[in-house]
Design a protein around this nucleic acid. Structure first.
Lengths: 330, 330
DNA sequence: CTGAAAGCGCTAACAA
DNA sequence: TTGTTAGCGCTTTCAG
């Protein structure tokens, strides 16, 4: 086990003090060309790289960013992670994945840990968290950016602008002669309620339609939940003619159940998802959905975070325009 | 910004030295019940948690594990990440995702960084890396576990045992009257060659079959590559009657191309994938594939790593039995 | 069984 | 323009 090379090794080799080495690296103080060269030569020769742990201890801040999401295996979050990591890589940050399973205790624990670990920042999709839970972060001066459908406390936000897309989706549904609309919505107790349900409701209202209460089910973002929810809706005394889903994972579950029940989509019932994850276009019928590009979301989260780390102090929101993608399920 | 609580704060509150606090926490030295209680009370009251950064600086090792894979958005790796993170969570480790895009320079950079960051360990699926590239890790005493189809240098390994599964798949293919077999294989220049191709070849040989050279294409693990490769095979003077794919992502690409070309699967050509990622069962026709459970792979990687961190010094291999899952594409 | 103190490698006053 | 030095918060000898 080779001993790591430290700054004072470099300093000795270059005939300067370790402070000078530090300043050559950081550029926080002028250094003559000569010394700089000597130091750089020594660094190259010894193969020195700073010890980020020591640096973090000293500065009280690391180069790690936490990504706190329900489940990294969910394709939406996996893509988001990809975009985030890619955009953070250049500036030297690394991404730590934290799976919360959408549980509040886990969400809180990870925020706690972020402050203990002196992380540089946190990117989070809160599910059960209260805005007040963010205080631990702000108290510690750790910037957070939230990826969610509605504003959340005082932190930066990346959010879909889905109004037109939902309107268009509803327009298509109605144009195909369906007026009885149901929804497989998110969990009933999620933070901030259910903005996607609200949005669909609001746009439906614009068209003079009301979603019957009995045609709305709630649950986590899993195929299972989608399947069960869809089954419930279709067993209703007066089943829906079209079903919106809060995301594509539940929509795929619904599709599976439709097949299981021998129902034709879109013949018997139309189906609209949200997100446009990769397999939305792979299932049959191909899923019509409200596209919200996960990778781009991740990149935007990165940008917002980097700006903060760069000193921005006002709150910012990035709205990403969602688009209706009409495929075969409507 | 609240000042963090340190060990000496706790020590002062409990009327002991900070060393004692440390020992209460680590249990590396006996402590009377009294002192322990006093310390624990102080910890609880002040809400103290150790500063992992300081600990890492002192011990020269952090609680971070790097997961080095081509692309976290690939469902197989996303699942693997999930299993890994879950299994590492209990013992207190965190997972840092590193996307290499299957490029050697990136793979090497991440290993380098792992040693600079004093990471606890590395879990990696090497694509272009040479076994010698691992020396930086072993020189720094950082354990690695490799997830790959064949042994790799001297490090711990999680690997599929796919012999029977491939044999069964080939058996089914042959039983359905097909003898002309092609393959959409991995990249030509990947580390360790292409074990999945080798395996299919070997089992085919057992049945007296040879894969014609002209019916083998190579490429990265993307849908695009699968589609293009499949197109090429089917344009062959004597196209294959069955095509094996090195993984399900390329297989899905192949399926898309089949549809595009108006080819019936399995009527015109059978298709077999590898891995059984979630959407293998969602596409149409449902993909027959050689199941290798990604999440379990992640968990096994975690186990192997934890054992190492716990002091094991002999090399270990975990073989996970792959199973043929017959669906509609054969 | 417990305490004192050194030091991990770095940064940032403070001096020169 | 450069050097000296005091810690960041912890672990771990070495004394007691």
């Amino acid at each position: 086990m080779r001993q790591p090379v430290t700054m004072s090794d470099v300093a000795r080799a270059a005939g300067v003090s370790s402070a000078t080495v530090s300043y050559v690296l950081s550029g926080k103080r002028p250094v003559t060309a000569e010394t700089r060269q000597a130091v750089e030569a020594a660094i190259a020769e010894l193969g020195f790289t700073v010890n980020p742990v020591a640096r973090s201890l000293r500065t009280g801040r690391s180069m790690l960013v936490a990504l706190v999401v329900p489940d990294i295996a969910n394709p939406f979050y996996a893509q988001l992670a990809h975009g985030l990591q890619e955009a953070l890589r250049g500036p030297g940050y690394h991404v730590v994945v934290c799976n919360t399973l959408a549980r509040r205790d886990e969400e809180r624990t990870f925020l706690q840990e972020a402050v203990h670990q002196r992380l540089a920042g946190v990117v989070i999709t809160p599910f059960r968290l209260a805005p007040a839970d963010f205080e631990v972060l702000s108290a510690a001066g750790i910037p957070a950016v939230v990826s969610a459908d509605i504003p959340f406390g005082e932190v930066d936000l990346v959010t879909p602008d889905a109004r037109d897309a939902v309107r268009e989706a509803l327009g298509r549904v109605v144009a195909s002669g369906r007026r009885r609309i149901g929804m497989i919505a998110g969990p009933r107790d999620a933070t901030g309620g259910d903005p996607r349900l609200d949005r669909v409701r609001a746009e439906a209202a614009e068209l003079g339609l009301t979603l019957p209460e009995g045609l709305i089910t709630h649950g986590e973002h899993t195929r299972e939940v989608g399947a069960v929810g869809f089954g419930r809706l279709m067993r209703h005394r007066r089943p829906p003619e079209a079903v919106f889903c809060a995301n594509d994972v539940t929509a795929v579950g619904a599709l599976e159940m439709a097949e299981h029940l021998g129902l034709d989509v879109p013949g018997d019932v139309a189906l609209v998802g949200h997100d446009d994850i990769e397999f939305a276009s792979l299932v049959r019928p191909r899923l019509s959905t409200i596209r919200y590009p996960a990778k781009e979301v991740g990149q935007s989260c990165a940008r917002l975070l980097l700006e903060r780390l760069d000193g921005r102090s006002e709150r910012r929101t990035v709205a990403i325009r969602a688009r209706y993608v009409g495929r075969e399920s409507v």
